[in-house]
Amino acid sequence: MSLLLLFLSAAIVNNFVLTYFLGICPFVGVSKRVSSAVSMGMAVMFVMTITAAVTWLIYHLLLVPFKIEILEYVSFILVIASLVQLVEMFIKKMSKPLYDTLGIYLPLITTNCAILGLALFSVLREYSFIESLVFGIGAGAGFTLALVLMAGIREELELSNVPKPFKGAGITMIVAGSLALAFMGFAGLI
C-alpha cells in the first residue's frame, strides 16, 4: 500500500515537472507533438527506472562502505551519461524514425535534471531499493503525463491567436503555470 502511495505521490501529487521544476528543458522543447512527447516520455521513464536502481546500488554498496560520499555527484552523472548513451544506441538501431524525431533531445536526457534529481532525492529521503525503484517509475510516469498533457494543449494552441511576443516559449510557460495550478488540486490527496 505504501508503495502505491509512493508511486502516486511521485507521479501526480509531487509531479517532477510541475512542482519540482525538474526536466523543464525537454518539457518545453519536445512538447510540440503528442507522438514525440509520448516517445520522449517513454525514453525518460526507461532511463529513470534503470538510474534509480543503479544509483541506489552504487551509493549503498560502493560510496557508503568506502566513505566517499563526496563523489556522489560525479559518479551519479557518469552512470546517467553512460545509460543515456546505451539507450541512444538502442533506439538508433531499433527505430530510425523515432531516433530522428527525438533528435537532439536524446543526448540531452543526460542533462535532464529530472534524472539526476531522482537519484539525489532517493538518497536524501533514504529510500530502500524497492522504494527507489517505485519512485523512479512513478516519477517517469509523472514526467510522461505532464509532457503529453502539454503536447495536447500545444497542438490546440497552434490554431489560436496568441499575441506575437508570447508565441512559443512565453505562452508555453503560461500554459504550464495553469497546468501546475490544476495539479495543485491533488495536493491534499496523500
Binding site: 499575441p163 506575437k164 508570447f166 512565453g170 510557460m173 503560461i174 503555470g177 495550478l181
Partner: peptide
Amino acid sequence: IMILPPGAFLTLGILIGLGNWLNE
C-alpha cells in the same frame, strides 16, 4: 500563488513575452 510553483511559470512566461516585445 506567486511563491508557489504556478507563480514561477506565470511570471517567467510573462517575462519572456516582455523580453520578446522589447526586442521587436
